[in-house]
């Protein structure tokens, strides 16, 4: 018996798979969904009345931030330091910690399910996945072929986050290398270690911004992260960090 649920929240859809449902776990699932909406109400940059929006628009002071927002900003600062500034909670000059919050929200869902006794569940927050138990099989969407997969990853406690701009269309090629300037259509980070989704997702955002060469090099230096890079030309090979094939099916 498997419980599945999909919930529209945070401008996307969160999908849940619970392999060991029970009344307590089902109750936790309801609480988790409510928690997601509460997180959205506080952190959404698209809701004028959210705490993040009020601060971004100067209607409220950062110094008066709630303890929850203050803690999120602390975590964001850690990732900003880890990524040499490639991740920022001010991506366009205004406060917007979404790059951390979505993965963090998934972590909280998993924590609630674990507290209720579940040891086998998988939560997908709009394309960023954290799984508990397993083995789980996580597909990586192929940006060139909607509905198809570029890779399948398998393992226990898998965490998979993808950054990409599939909508961006044609790229200008660098005549010297034949590659697009940033050279990335999507970048997927995978971990099964202690790294959790918020950190993995934020690192994926940062490494994508770095571009193919630097992003792969940087990820290769992180002991608990592996990367799959899909380049903007389908004729170009996919690239991955040296340990990526541990996860590939």
């Amino acid at each position: 018996m498997i419980t599945r649920h999909a919930e529209q929240v945070m401008g996307t859809v969160f999908s849940f798979v619970v392999r060991d449902p029970s009344p307590a776990v089902d109750e936790a699932l309801h609480a988790a969904v409510a928690r997601l909406h509460a997180i959205d109400a506080r952190f959404s940059p698209y809701r004028a009345d959210s705490e993040v929006s009020r601060i971004a628009h100067g209607e409220s002071e950062l110094a008066d931030a709630s303890p929850e927002l203050a803690e999120v900003l602390e975590r964001c600062a850690e990732i900003e330091a880890l990524t040499d500034g490639w991740f920022s909670p001010y991506p366009e000059g205004r406060l917007d910690p979404s790059g951390w919050v979505k993965g963090w929200a998934v972590e909280q869902v998993c924590a609630l399910l674990c507290e209720a006794g579940s040891t086998e569940h998988c939560v997908n927050g709009g394309g960023d996945v954290q799984s508990v138990g397993g083995p789980w099989r996580i597909g990586v969407a192929d940006p060139f072929r909607p509905g198809a997969l570029a890779a399948v990853l398998a393992g226990r406690d898998l965490v998979v986050a993808t950054s990409g701009t599939a909508e961006r269309g044609a790229h200008i090629l660098d005549p010297r290398t034949g590659e697009a300037p940033t050279g990335l259509l999507s970048l997927t980070l995978v971990s099964s270690g202690p790294a959790r989704l918020a950190r993995t997702d934020a690192c994926a955002t940062a490494a994508f911004a770095m571009g193919a060469e630097q992003g792969l090099a940087w990820t290769g230096r992180q002991p608990d992260l592996e990367a799959l890079a899909i380049l903007p030309d389908p004729a170009l090979p996919k690239r991955a960090t040296s340990g990526f094939l541990r996860y590939a099916v």
Partner: peptide, 18 residues
């Protein structure tokens, strides 16, 4: 890598809108 044969549980990709 076709979804039918891959027996996957979830899909990771660039964040989709609703």
């Amino acid at each position: 890598l076709s979804a039918q044969s891959a027996q996957i549980d979830a899909v990771s990709g660039a964040t989709y809108t609703s």
